[in-house]
């Protein structure tokens, strides 16, 4: 239980610090720390496979790309033109939407934490082997799995098209 609180605290504090940083490089690193703590939580839940995949995919692959982009753009400081004293609801559209989403998230969290009573412990699932995960993924969850892969493919094609568009436009 001590470990749970330790990993939980690291995850929460690192996530909060991600958005509190001015320097995007530090944000990226703190996000990696947060992912690492989440991976620790998965280990505590007897899911070593998910824990390691979390490190490989998120902390390893995706965040390296993030870091790569941040370094290439070389944006040392995130300058904000906004007056921080103005009430969030009075700021431009995107921020107003963000405020609504944040309020919704907080409401949801409060609901989730109060809906279940503290004593209700859930049954730990059976120790899942990699083979079982694979079989479930390609039978019971084949549809969501394929939809996710198509979604990623669409995002990839979109990114290529957007990058290509600029290059072609430059030549014309």
């Amino acid at each position: 239980m001590t470990l749970f609180y330790l990993f939980g605290a690291v995850a929460v504090i690192a996530s909060l610090l991600v958005i509190a940083q001015r320097n995007p490089i530090y944000s990226v690193l703190l996000l990696i720390a947060s992912f690492g703590a989440l991976s620790g939580l998965y280990v505590l839940l007897d899911a070593p496979f998910v824990a390691v995949i979390q490190i490989i995919v998120y902390a390893g692959a995706i965040m390296v790309l993030f870091l790569f982009v941040v370094m290439l753009l070389n944006a040392p400081q995130e300058d904000t033109e906004l007056d921080m004293r103005v009430h969030p609801m009075l700021r431009p559209g995107a921020m107003r939407f963000g405020t609504v989403l944040a309020v919704g998230l907080v409401a949801e969290l409060i609901w989730a934490l109060t809906a279940t009573t503290g004593s209700a412990s859930f049954q730990p699932g059976p120790l899942i082997s990699v083979a079982t995960i694979g079989r479930r993924l390609f039978t019971d969850y084949a549809f969501p799995f394929e939809v996710t892969s198509v979604l990623i493919l669409v995002a990839m094609v979109g990114a290529v098209v957007m990058a290509r568009h600029d290059a072609a436009g430059g030549k014309r």
């Binding site: 390691v52 995949i53 490190i55 902390a59 390893g60 390296v64 870091l67």
Partner: peptide
Amino acid sequence: ILVIFAIASMSVY
């Protein structure tokens, strides 16, 4: 095997 792979990906940092 996956742990080795994960740590290899972390050493890039």
